[in-house]
Simulated scan of single mutants.
Amino acid sequence: MERETRYEAQNVLIGSFTLESGETLHEVELAYEHVGPEDAPVILVCHALTGNQYTIGDSEPGWWKGLIGKDGYIDTSEFQVITFNVLGGCNGSTGPLSINPVTRERYKADFPFVSVRDMVHSQKKALEVLGIDHLHAVIGGSLGGMQVLEWGALYPDGMEHLIPLAVTPSLNTYGIAYNAISRFAITNDPDWKDGYYDPHHQPTSGLATARMIGMISYRTDEMFQKKFGRAATETSEENHKEAKYEVESYLHYQGNKLVSRFDANSYLYLLRAMDTHDISKGRGNLTSIIKNIKASILAIGFKGDLIYPPEDLEKLFAQAHSSPFYLINTKFGHDGFLVEFDKWGPLIKEQVTLTKNIEGVK
């Protein structure tokens, strides 16, 4: 008899929460999506920079719909899957858009800086409120992968499996450089107003530019060349604003698309969390940190990833752990963890179900 699969998307209140910086937020809430049978093992999914809690989605497909779902590589008829919108986000969790319970006005730029460790600690507290005290697995890519590594370091007894994707122990200089340009674009938009802009009139030009910059770092030159080449648009206009080439049109589209769903301040806060994260901070050398992780680990990197070089992830576990590392051959670079699930989804399925001898994935 097939177990009933529930779907819920709502908020959980975790009360007052003290950040790594020492500052305390009050009346904190995290928005979440929760799918799967009530008696099934729980898998926590951690989202990336512009992701959200809608991993699977309901009325619209979620951002990992091809990986997770009924009969998916992570099967929601066999597992419960829960995803939180990160602290500092803009999809329902406490962040710059939220009302400060002390001032009764939006935090905006008065919101304190948050760290990746803050995100993980807040998720742990939210899980406890929801009555979940142990996880079968924690999985995520990019900023989500940073959270996965922190889960293993902060709560080594809290899960059976860790699956970090497209991530490194800390963001490399190249990644920080891209983030610096994105930050510059937003903070120099006249509408940014030092972060105290009207949420309905945010710095759209700066945020769109930041997204365009990000898209270049997420994909490989080979991918851009294959997809666009030097194909021209159909515009007959000859000016500096019109997109003359298809690649320009694509970047404009991606920038405008993000503006319609994301908050510029949240973007800045999450960029800072990525920049400052270092799993070794205050803990000593990487070898000892990884050896202290008790969960079974499956690490996956993606060929051509510019901001989280896969060789750094491989080295992290090779020097201290017998955990397997897989390099996925892809033209998508960093964005490989969001596509081509047939290439690496079987690895995930094998890890979480402990099945053996999956063919064609080595």
Rank of each mutant, 00 (worst) to 15 (best):
E2K: 12
R3H: 15
R3C: 07
T5K: 09
R6K: 13
Q10R: 15
F17I: 08
F17A: 08
L19V: 11
T24E: 12
P41A: 07
P41M: 05
V42F: 02
L44I: 04
A48G: 12
A48R: 05
T50F: 02
T50E: 05
N52H: 06
Y54T: 14
G57N: 01
D58P: 00
W64T: 04
G66N: 05
L67F: 05
K70I: 11
S77T: 13
S77Q: 10
F79K: 03
Q80S: 04
I82R: 08
I82Q: 10
I82G: 03
V86P: 10
G88P: 10
N91L: 12
N91E: 11
G95R: 05
V102L: 13
R104H: 14
R104S: 13
S115C: 04
V120H: 00
S122F: 05
K124S: 06
K125V: 07
A126T: 07
E128A: 13
V129L: 11
V129M: 13
L130D: 08
L130Y: 05
G131T: 13
G131P: 09
I132T: 04
H134A: 12
H134Y: 14
I139C: 11
I139H: 03
V148N: 09
W151V: 03
Y155C: 04
M159D: 04
H161R: 13
L162W: 04
I163A: 03
P164C: 11
P164S: 08
L165D: 00
T168E: 06
N172K: 10
A177H: 12
A180E: 15
R183S: 10
A185R: 00
T187A: 11
N188L: 09
D191P: 01
D191A: 06
K193C: 07
H200W: 07
H201G: 14
T204N: 15
T204C: 09
T209V: 13
G214D: 02
I216C: 06
D221W: 08
D221N: 11
D221S: 12
M223N: 15
F224W: 12
K227Y: 10
R230A: 15
E237H: 14
H252D: 15
H252N: 15
R261A: 05
A264T: 05
L270S: 00
L271A: 08
R272W: 10
M274A: 14
M274L: 14
D275C: 03
S280L: 11
K281Q: 13
S288L: 09
I290R: 02
I290P: 00
I290Q: 04
K294L: 01
A295W: 00
A299F: 02
P309M: 01
P310C: 03
P310T: 08
E311T: 11
L313F: 07
L313N: 04
E314G: 10
E314L: 08
Q319E: 15
H321S: 15
L327E: 06
H334R: 09
G336R: 00
L338E: 04
E340T: 03
E340M: 06
F341C: 00
F341L: 02
F341N: 02
F341I: 06
G345C: 10
T353Y: 01
L354Y: 13
L354G: 14
N357L: 10
K362F: 10
